[in-house]
Design a protein around this nucleic acid. Structure first.
Length: 279
DNA sequence: AACCTTTACAACCGCCACGGT
DNA sequence: CACCGTGGCGGTTGTAAAGGT
């Protein structure tokens, strides 16, 4: 037996909110508050809406000091930094951006930022019979799409900062090949791990006050024991083997090397990714 | 002008956590 | 301790607008 619905679906209006509905909801909440009961609220004010729908409407559009659109470059930086480190925890990300809602940020990421930063991945044809050996090979395919996306994004950011390092590192090249040719039957051979960056270069990518100025804010949950969620998914990979992932990532909020995709085009690092997206 | 595709964003859905009973 | 109701969250869908052919 399934759970009971939160409201009577048959008698509930769906779709876009009318100005009248907005007015009813807003003026009631302004006057009486939500009463800590969203489910009962629409009945009180005579709205044929689900309580959840009322809550969403209020939180995303009607409550005071909500900003829509016009994301600044600084906000872009914060969203990207947090997405890399904690993934799609939009509510946490939204908590760092006053006036922004998780829904807004999620939409913005999915429709614009992601394309701007990652480009469009041209799915390659599978290569028959190509398999890599190695007893400690790890299967990138088993990473979630979110984790892959974050790895890819991180590599992109690293290339922005230090384009030459990309070509000096065998593993990174291997990873790029793998991301390009990924299919369910392929494994990647274990790379040579003697080329990890020096220890002092390793930055666990925790966003600190110095670089971003928001790590100390109370709403930001710790990213974990100085590692990325996406790295945690690679259970079979030894931590030190991933050291190269952690080349210092500096939020480039002060220089011209911002998140502008044109910088990436110059380097032509990812030929398989269309970085020509412009906003 | 008509049609098709892409983009942007509002809204819905279902799952999960939590507090009250 | 189990159950229930609710809030919160992230993923997904629907759709209008914009752009392209």
């Amino acid at each position: 037996m399934g759970r009971a619905p939160c409201c009577d679906k048959a008698n509930v209006k769906k779709g876009p909110w009318s100005p009248e509905e907005d007015f009813k909801l807003k003026s009631y909440i302004d006057q009486f508050g939500t009463g800590n009961n969203w489910i009962a609220l629409p009945q009180k004010i005579g709205l044929k809406r689900c309580g959840k729908s009322c809550r969403l409407r209020w939180l995303n559009y009607l409550r005071p000091n909500i900003k829509h659109g016009g994301f600044t470059e600084e906000e872009d930086n914060i969203i990207c930094s947090l997405y890399i480190s904690i993934g799609s925890r939009w509510s946490i990300i939204a908590a760092q951006l006053p006036g922004r809602t998780d829904n807004d940020i999620k939409n913005y990421w999915n429709t614009r930022l992601k394309k701007k930063l990652l480009g469009r991945h041209r799915k390659p044809a599978p290569i028959p019979g190509q398999e890599a050996a190695g007893e400690d090979a790890f299967d990138l395919y088993n990473l979630s799409s979110s984790a892959l996306e974050r790895l890819q994004l991180h590599m992109q950011l690293q290339s922005l900062q230090n384009p030459l390092s990309l070509f000096n590192n065998h593993l990174q090249q291997k990873m790029i090949q793998t991301l390009d040719s990924l299919n369910p039957h392929q494994l990647i051979a274990p790379p040579a791990f003697g080329q990890a960056p020096m220890a002092e270069q390793i930055n666990p990518l925790l966003l600190d006050e110095k670089s971003c100025g928001f790590a100390a804010e109370e709403n930001l949950q710790p990213v974990g024991d100085d590692e990325f969620d996406c790295f945690k998914e690679m259970g079979g990979v030894e931590r030190e083997n991933l050291a190269w992932w952690c080349n210092e990532f500096e939020v480039k909020s002060t220089s011209s090397s911002s998140w502008d995709s044109t910088a990436v085009i110059d380097h032509q690092i990812y030929g398989d990714y269309d970085m020509g997206f412009s906003m």
